[in-house]
Simulated assay, not measured.
Amino acid sequence: MNYFPSMKKLQSALLLFCVVIAITNIHPVFAHKVQVAADVGATLHLEPNDNPRAGEPTQAWFALTRKGGQTIPLAQCNCQLAVYAEPHTPSEPALLEPSLKPVSAERFQGIPGADITFPKPGLYQLQLSGKPAKDENFKPFTLKFEVTVAAGTQNNTQSIQNANSDAVAQETTKTLPPWAIAIPGVVLVGVFLVFLQQTRRN
């Protein structure tokens, strides 16, 4: 009698699972960030899959367009990129200032791009500012993008932890005096002699 209700529950659970998997897999497609200032707009994309990780190189590129949809390649823009750890104050210097290079991605040719290695997980702001190169006719702009950086892969994290552990161990060995190293050996010998005496009495 309980067979059919349990089957319905199982089907509902499977359907929910499939929906969650589908949403999880589709999510990166909608992760591009878009900002507009004056008559210029840009879409930010981060490789891989808009999911940057701390300590790993990330390629960022900006699909710059002017009003009307015409692409602005890096050659037509005096652009600078600054990276800030959030939160930050307006007077605070940039954490990183990666150099921009022309990148061809998707249908865009020669757009601004940069390689960024975020030092640790957390929230960052990428600030792309620019003004037109000679004979170009768009207004100066500043575009700000919020980026969340995840922790690095397990391998990177493990290797960093191992390096830190080795450094601590070496430092501890260097700072310990010889008598501190000898004490455990003396204690062990003492325990062994007491044990030997007890054995002989018995």
Rank of each mutant, 00 (worst) to 15 (best):
P28H: 05
E136R: 06
K134R: 04
Q76V: 04
P87C: 04
P57G: 00
A167W: 00
H27E: 14
Q109W: 06
E56K: 13
E56W: 08
I21F: 00
T172Q: 00
L128D: 03
K131W: 09
N25S: 03
I23K: 02
Q109Y: 10
P132M: 02
G113N: 06
A22P: 01
E146W: 09
T175D: 03
E97F: 09
L14D: 08
T148C: 01
L46A: 15
A60C: 09
L100H: 08
R53L: 15
Y84S: 04
P140G: 08
W179P: 05
S159V: 11
C79V: 08
S99V: 11
L15G: 10
A31C: 02
Y3C: 08
T172G: 00
F62V: 12
Q59M: 15
Q170S: 11
F62I: 12
V186L: 11
F62R: 07
F145T: 01
T117G: 06
A31T: 07
N202L: 06
S6E: 14
V189N: 09
E47P: 09
I116S: 04
N49I: 08
L176K: 01
I116H: 06
H45I: 03
S91T: 08
I26A: 11
P48S: 05
V19C: 10
K33D: 14
K101F: 10
P28L: 05
A82T: 10
A31D: 11
A75C: 00
W61K: 00
A163S: 10
K120P: 01
N162I: 10
A169S: 12
P112R: 13
F138S: 00
N78K: 15
D39K: 03
A63Q: 07
F192E: 02
N162V: 05
S159Y: 03
K174A: 06
N162S: 09
A133T: 03
V186W: 00
F4D: 14
H32Y: 13
K8H: 12
A13F: 11
P132H: 11
F62H: 02
F192L: 12
P90A: 08
L10T: 13
V147S: 06
R200T: 14
Y124E: 11
V40A: 05
A54I: 03
T24M: 10
Q70R: 13
D115Y: 14
N164C: 10
K9C: 06
K101R: 12
V186P: 02
A85V: 08
L74W: 01
F118G: 01
E146I: 12
L64E: 01
L15N: 13
K67H: 06
T157C: 06
P121W: 04
T172F: 02
P52C: 02
L10Y: 07
A182P: 01
K139N: 14
A105D: 05
Y3S: 11
I160N: 14
A85D: 08
A37W: 07
A42L: 05
F195D: 13
Q80L: 02
N202P: 04
G110L: 03
D50Y: 06
S91D: 11
T24D: 13
S159N: 05
A37R: 06
F4N: 14
G122M: 15
K33C: 07
Q161M: 15
E47K: 08
V187Y: 03
L188C: 06
A151C: 02
I26N: 08
V147R: 04
I116C: 07
K139P: 04
T173R: 06
I72T: 07
P28M: 09
A82S: 10
K174R: 15
Q158E: 15
Q198S: 14
G55I: 01
T172H: 00
A13M: 07
